[in-house]
Amino acid sequence: MQRYFIHLQNRVYTPKDATMLLERARELAKDVVVRDSRVSKKYIEFDTSIPDSMDVGDLVGRLEKISPLASVEHIVEKDVPKDEAVRHAVELFNEEKYWGAHEALEAVWKSTPRGKERDMINGIILVAAAFVHDLKDEREICLSILGRAMKKLDGAGGAYHGINVDRLAARVSKILRTGRIERFTI
C-alpha cells in the first residue's frame, strides 16, 4: 500500500463538512483506504492508502467528482537535514496542511535528544495536531491539544529555524484564554 494526501481545491466547504466529505470519498473509492478528511479554507485533504498496483491518478479522477485537484503528496519517510525539514513543515503549516507539517516535524523530533529543544519541537507538533482537529470541526479536542502544546512550549522562546516561538506561544495562549480558535501562520 502507498500513502497519499490528496488535496482538492476548496471553494464552499467548512470543517463541519469533513464527515460528509469523508463518506463521499469512501463511496467514490471503495477499493482504497480513505482514513480521514480535513477541510481548510483552501483545501479538502484526504488521507489515503492505495494498493501498490493502483495508479494514484485513478483515485484522483474519482475524487475530482467532489472538487478539482490542488495537489497530490506521496507520503514516505524521508531523511532530510533538520533545516530543510523544518522549512518544509513551516510551508505546510502556513498552507493549513497541518498533518503534513506534523509528519515533517516528527522526523526532526525523533532525531533530537531529550531536552528543551525536543520539548519545543513537540509543542509545535502539538499545535499542528490541534489544528488538524479544528479542520474536522472537533473544537474541544483542538483546545485540549493546544493546552498540552503550551506545556511543551513553556520556557521556550526566541527563534527556531525561522519560527518565532514567542509569537507562536502567545497565539496559542490567546486561543486558550479566549476559547476562540483562530488559525495562524508561523
Results as ranks from 00 to 15, higher is better:
105 L>F: 08
71 S>W: 05
168 L>N: 04
33 V>W: 02
41 K>Y: 06
174 K>N: 14
50 I>P: 08
32 V>S: 10
82 K>I: 15
49 S>P: 03
86 V>N: 11
17 D>G: 03
23 E>C: 05
123 G>Q: 02
87 R>A: 14
56 V>P: 11
10 N>W: 01
38 R>A: 14
154 D>Q: 14
145 I>P: 04
104 A>S: 12
56 V>Y: 12
36 D>G: 15
6 I>H: 07
69 L>R: 01
81 P>F: 06
35 R>F: 09
138 E>N: 15
102 H>E: 07
32 V>N: 11
95 E>T: 11
87 R>V: 02
128 A>V: 06
180 R>S: 07
147 G>T: 05
148 R>T: 01
70 A>M: 06
167 R>I: 07
35 R>L: 10
167 R>V: 10
160 Y>T: 04
109 W>C: 07
47 D>C: 04
78 K>Q: 13
88 H>I: 01
32 V>I: 15
47 D>F: 07
67 S>D: 10
180 R>A: 08
124 I>W: 00
29 A>I: 05
6 I>D: 05
41 K>W: 03
150 M>I: 01
35 R>V: 06
61 G>W: 10
53 S>I: 11
133 H>P: 01
47 D>A: 08
157 G>D: 10
138 E>A: 08
9 Q>Y: 02
88 H>G: 00
177 R>W: 02
69 L>K: 03
44 I>A: 00
136 K>L: 04
103 E>F: 01
127 V>R: 00
182 E>P: 00
156 A>M: 08
96 E>F: 09
38 R>N: 02
156 A>C: 06
180 R>I: 09
160 Y>S: 04
128 A>Y: 08
48 T>P: 05
51 P>Y: 06
90 V>E: 03
32 V>C: 13
52 D>R: 13
76 V>E: 15
67 S>C: 08
140 E>C: 05
139 R>L: 10
26 R>C: 04
185 T>S: 14
